[in-house]
Each structure stands twice: as C-alpha cells, then as structure tokens.
Design a protein around this nucleic acid. Structure first.
Lengths: 243, 243
DNA sequence: GAGTGGTCTAGACCACGCC
DNA sequence: GCGTGGTCTAGACCACTCC
C-alpha cells in the first residue's frame, strides 16, 4: 500500500532545523554556527543536503560564510520582501499591496501586430496577435493602465472576453497550459498627456512607472508583450540587487 | 612536488562541455539532450557535477528540463544583458552604456544624520554620518544627481575629498576592505522643480528615475544609503524577472 | 515497466585562515 | 598542523512521463 503523504524536501526541513538551532542556542548576529559536519549531525541530514540549506539561507540573508573560518549569523535578516526581480502579474502586484483588484476591459483587438510588437515577440510574417487594453483598479482607485499582446495562435480555445476574476497569467497557466517562467522588463518614468489623462479619468501630471515586459514561458517562447503603466501614488517598487 | 596551476572548476568545464556537445551534435532549439547519466559520461564528470552545470545553464537560459522527459535546448538564449537585479554603482552603470564618466563634488557634509538616514542605516544614537553630494556626467552630459550617506565610523583613514577616478564602491572595497554584497533599492519616477533644475543645469520637466538604495556588505551591515537620480533621457533600465 | 530528472547520502580530497 | 568551508564522486532511491 502506498501511504501517500505530503512531504517537504529534506533541504527545506534542514533550513528550518538550522534556524531552530540558531534561536535555541540564542545565537546573535555575528556569532559563529557549528561546523558543517557538526551541524549536519545536529540537523540529521548529510553534509551535502545541509550545504544546500545553508546556501539558501545565505541567499535569503540569514547567514554568511567565510572560507576557512566558519558560518556566521547575519547582522540582520535582509530581503524580507521580494521585489521586482520576482515576476508577478498586475493582479498579484495589486494583491500584494493588500488592495482589492478590479479590471475594466477597454477593448480587445485581433489583427496584424505593429512593428514594435512583432519585434519584441519575434513573430513570423503574417502571424496575428491579440491585444488587450485594460484599466486596473485597486480599491476602486485607478492603479494601472495595461496593454498586453500575445500571439493569436496561443488561444486554442478562442479568445476570452475577459479573464473572469482570474489574472491573465493564471489563464495562461490553467487554460492554455503555458507555464510562465520569466520576463525581461524595461522600467521608465512616464506622464500621460492631458488627452489621455482625461480618457483614463485621472488628474494630469501624475507620475507613472512604465513596465515594458516580454514574458517568457518555461520553454523560452515569448508569449506576452505588455506595457503596464503603474500609478506611482499607489505603489512602491523594490528591487533586491546582488553584486 | 606541487605543480600549482590555474584550474577552472569542474562545473564550469562541464558547462563548456555541454555547450560543445550541443553545437557539435548540431542540436536545435527544442531538441532533446542525452540523459544526465549519458551526458556525465560524455563530458567526463559525475552526475552531481553535471547537474550543477545544467542548473547554471538553465538559469542562463540555454536549456530547460522537464521531469520524466528530459533536458532540451531553449528556444533562444534570453537574458543576455544583466539588469537592475545586479548591483552596480553609478560609475559602473555609466560605463556599461559606453559613456565616459565624470564626477563633480558639490559638497561633503559630516554630522548628525536626519531621521530618514538614521532609519535606513539603522544607526545608534549619536552616530555621525558623512554625506556626499555629487553631480555625475556621462560624456559631459548631466546624467545622475547622487546623494550618498555612510556612517562616519567606516572611514578609518579620514574622509576622502574625492574618490580620485575611483568609484565609491571601489574605494570601499580597496581602501576600507568592505566587501559590498547587495542592495535593497526602491525605484520611483521623479521630476525636479524649477529651482533645483536650474541648480543642476538642466531644462525643467525632464523625467528622472530615482533609485533609493541601502547598500549591504558581506556581513549584512548597512554601509551606504544613497539617492541616485538618473536622467531617463540617457539611460534605459532593464530587470530580469524570474517567476 | 522502462527511462528520465529530483533528492539524498557517505566519504574523499582541496583551498583557505589561523595558530 | 588543524579546522573550516569548497568541490567532486559513485551510487541509492524517489517521482514523473510515456508506452
């Protein structure tokens, strides 16, 4: 019989073990941990597994290592909040600020792409794209103006009229079986002209952050090209940068 | 006798081996590589080492894996250019755009920090800071206005008048033996008011990107808090985002 | 069931920092 | 010389995919 039960990986159990070891031994920032060999016995895993756990804890800012000396507790846990280096869709961003997201579809276009889109998605001649123009609200305040284009060939079940409480990313993953993996984003400051401000129903002069993104799936295919204009009065964007 | 010679790590040799295998077998995007066991024999390393090499190649966008199926050549190599997720100082950023950097020091202040700086650097009471106000030029065009503060206690050799053709980061690493490791940055759009525009010698209304950063060394100490205002007409900022 | 990648182990040897 | 982290190996077993 197969007693199928949920199992965490040993590595993540080892991470918890190390953190528990640190707190139960009351280690302070700058203090030295036991050697890897000892720690592996304490935590109850092999040294390789422990080292993988230590590597993750180091990336997450809990500890640091010095070759030939030892492993030490970090001055302070940094990087608690993930930033722009982690890919999230607009819906996820709005939710992560504890705002209630709402979407208003302005229009959906199907047709030949303009040069920019064709370039960014590396489309072949005559390939069609679907472009969604949407206003996004956070707690009913205007939050993001977003223009997203995808190759029409991806929409095997026809083009959705909206994404029924789902984010576009979720739609891609759940319905189209496209696993979104990464994005290359360009970030720049932006202000809408008076005309566009009126259309979007905002007062002119508000500063926006424009995120131009090419979204890539797990096989490296370029599946979305989007322009997302974030109202800088509602959002703060962080980036965790490593040397 | 010990013939001390330069040795690359086996992992990086294995990476080269895998890339050579791909090209010499003329594998195209979407093609399947040999299994890990086979590949490890072909490349001549153990499976663990090979797997580490494959993991890096996957991060770098050359290949992708599907459990139970195999390893495949990526549709295209993405992420060729590193972006904001990699920490660089202003000088490095200017150089990476192939501009010639120049710095003009406006003033250097030593004294008690304001609340913001004290907060961000987590200073104790009565700790002093040094603040550098600098204009940075790229090919003699105004590129960045930068305000950087550090705890005065770090400057063991006295406060430098300028950084003599060195970047501040280099000065920290070479003279103060402080290994800069990471930064937490907040990015936002910005415009200078007329008064400040005049002082900086730019025409008003230019859009800037403000990068507020806390720079952290290898031990997790907060060593610099800086505000860097980048002229968006001269720079384009990219971020590689992973799911 | 066969084949693939995913996880984990025990142990060897190397390179660095310090006494 | 000794202890530390860094690298590498050979091999076991698991989970997923496809036939």
């Amino acid at each position: 019989m197969k007693t199928e039960r949920y199992r965490k990986s040993l590595v993540s159990l080892a991470k918890e073990g190390v953190l528990k070891y640190i707190s139960s031994n009351n280690l302070k920032p700058g203090d030295k941990l036991a050697s890897e060999i000892e720690l592996s016995r304490i935590v109850g895993v092999s040294r390789s597994t422990l080292r993988e756990a230590l590597a993750e804890l180091s990336r997450e800012g809990y500890i640091y290592k010095k070759q030939g000396k030892g492993t030490f507790v970090m001055e302070r846990a940094n990087f608690l909040r993930s930033g722009l280096e982690k890919f999230e869709g607009v819906t996820e961003v709005i939710r992560s600020f504890n705002y209630k997201p709402r979407t208003e579809v302005i229009k959906i276009e199907v047709g030949a792409p303009n040069e920019e889109i064709k370039d960014m998605l590396e489309l072949s001649e005559e390939e069609m794209v679907v472009t969604f123009y949407r206003k996004r609200f956070a707690n009913d305040k205007f939050a993001v103006y977003s223009v997203s284009s995808s190759p029409a060939s991806l929409f095997v079940d026809g083009i959705p009229k909206c994404f029924e409480n789902e984010s576009m990313i979720d739609y891609f993953e759940n319905h189209l079986k496209i696993k979104v993996n990464a994005a290359i984003a360009e970030i720049s400051p932006f202000v809408f002209d008076e005309n566009m401000s009126r259309k979007l129903g905002i007062k002119p002069g508000i500063l926006f952050l424009l995120l131009k993104q090419v979204v890539v799936d797990s096989m490296g295919r370029k599946v979305i090209y989007s322009l997302d204009y974030y109202n800088s009065e509602l959002f703060r964007f962080f980036i965790n940068r490593k040397r």
